[in-house]
Design a protein around this nucleic acid. Sequence first.
DNA 1: CTACATAGTTCAATCGATTGAATAAATACA
DNA 2: TGTATTTATTCAATCGATTGAACTATGTAG
Lengths: 340, 340
Amino acid sequence: MASRPTLKTIADQVGVTVSAVSLALRDDLRISQATRERIQQAAKELGYVYNRHAAGLRRGDSGTVAVCLNDLSNPFFTEFLGHMEARFREADRMMLFCHAHETPSIQARFIRQMAEHGAAGLILVPVAGTTREDLDGAQVRHLQDFPLVLISRDVADTGFDRVINDDVLGIRLLFEHLYEAGHRRFAWFGGGGDTSTARDRECSFRQQMDAAGLPVTRDSVHHGPTTLEFGDAMLERLLTMPEPPTAIMCFSDIIAFGVLAACYRHGVRPGVDISVTGFDDMAAAAYSAPALTSVRVRTDLIGQCASELLLSRMAGERYPPIRKVVPPELVVRASTGPAA
Amino acid sequence: MASRPTLKTIADQVGVTVSAVSLALRDDLRISQATRERIQQAAKELGYVYNRHAAGLRRGDSGTVAVCLNDLSNPFFTEFLGHMEARFREADRMMLFCHAHETPSIQARFIRQMAEHGAAGLILVPVAGTTREDLDGAQVRHLQDFPLVLISRDVADTGFDRVINDDVLGIRLLFEHLYEAGHRRFAWFGGGGDTSTARDRECSFRQQMDAAGLPVTRDSVHHGPTTLEFGDAMLERLLTMPEPPTAIMCFSDIIAFGVLAACYRHGVRPGVDISVTGFDDMAAAAYSAPALTSVRVRTDLIGQCASELLLSRMAGERYPPIRKVVPPELVVRASTGPAA
DNA sequence: CTACATAGTTCAATCGATTGAATAAATACA
DNA sequence: TGTATTTATTCAATCGATTGAACTATGTAG
């Protein structure tokens, strides 16, 4: 029944004031070592639990950071989560987490709530279609000078820090790899969402096609969700064509895995009869059947860089907004080969 | 420069007291509708942001719940996260999140910190080897009567609520499926961690073998981490045996995917030359090459049930600790077939 | 015209930790 | 011995929202 002990409880027990206890528990040298030890001992015995609400109220900092992702079912994003979590734990920051499900209203609500909680910073993979307006004014007036780092997806015209992958380069690497292997008939299985990632990758695909003097027809570009189902279904459709493409570039590994599954069912051999590429190089890409050619997005570097940037902003660093673009790496595996 | 507005700021603006503002913002009927509207209007104009530290200090509830998982790289666990996040969002609870990396010290620290934050409840997938002592006394004296729900993995002798999968049943379903298909030489690729899941599944495997009158030899049981690498490497080893098993049961889909990858490289046809089963039935299982026979762990039901249980405990419900066991479902796909 | 609800608002204490300033005690210095 | 300095601790205000009790009009019943 005894309610949670407070500084007062300890103070009474030891015979000092709350001030002394407060200082002692934080190892302040103003309190003599002897007293400090008695106080810390008593705190332990009483099972004292620090109250961050009280501390946060007085100090204005809650010791938390907020992270908002949009798609947990995609391991690619959980890789980010892992890397950032590690860095924040190191910095002794707790993480408020939100799964926005690509839904603007969820994202907006989370931004408001994390502000209410006094989170000191926010890392955000903006949901598709997020605009500048969504990020400032709208929810939290004081977001203007609030530490906020966008990752993975870019939002134009923001005054925020951003850490993103070089999607244009990634597609170029894959395209060149396929082109050099003799492929001339390409298909693009692209992300349908309104994100910078989807736009940049598809745009880069079209540029490469143009530069190679290859026509982009209605049959070469297909849009859909980033799911296994989409890749699977799309390949089924492609196989009914009179002269199907010999190389399929997918917006994401996830889609490519779907394509591989459909190939397997139809006895089409990826890397021999057809070439398939992914994007992201998630862990499973090395173990698909066959192993998937992809570009490795450096989630580790991006995640670390973003956390670092956020922590430095939180520490009060002032500099113009940074837009960091991290180059990915081509990883050639068995799912691609010379054009038949 | 103007610091964040408070109730006082609004009160001065409108010409009422903080009490009135506090009540009005929460739509308390004690304040006349006219005044309420004026206050709410002013709050909006000033860009007022609710301060949960202040409210939490006074009310003793921060409106957060804590969730601690141990392995983000396994999509199986992020499925839980998704389901719980949805339920908590619905209940207007924020989520403090921790990735314990199977590390007891991280788990312990998180438990302490979430208590400091005044989280109203905790859902935990305990890290391998977690004991009763780790969960009470040790970190937070007041955890005794603290809403805590364990999921996925069980910890013996706790007085806490638990929601877990019926692992024994799952293995039995898979075994019977394989046995009826004529398989008699089995291998078990098992989780190496000290978790109830690893123990229960392996134990069930041994029971089934016994019941079928099949010997469990040194060559039939293999332990390792829940990774693609482990499954891959283990199959390589198995193929060097003079008389390899015809059926391989894996502790997790992840391991099975590694096995399928190795099969593919060696031209061994899963479902024809050898049968492979996973466990969990994560989304990718339907799209592996070939599609994987597995048992579907109802992460949706378990996640929902756990959140529901936690919310009801948080609401003050008192009843003896509940141990809810959710039955999984057999999903037969192409990776298993009649014994050669 | 008094007594009495009733609605609308304010008063004032409270939650628990923090911190700059003040005080007391002990030690050093002249 | 008296004063300056250091060390150890306490005082008291503060952060911002909440809430039971108190107060003040206004209206209603007797």
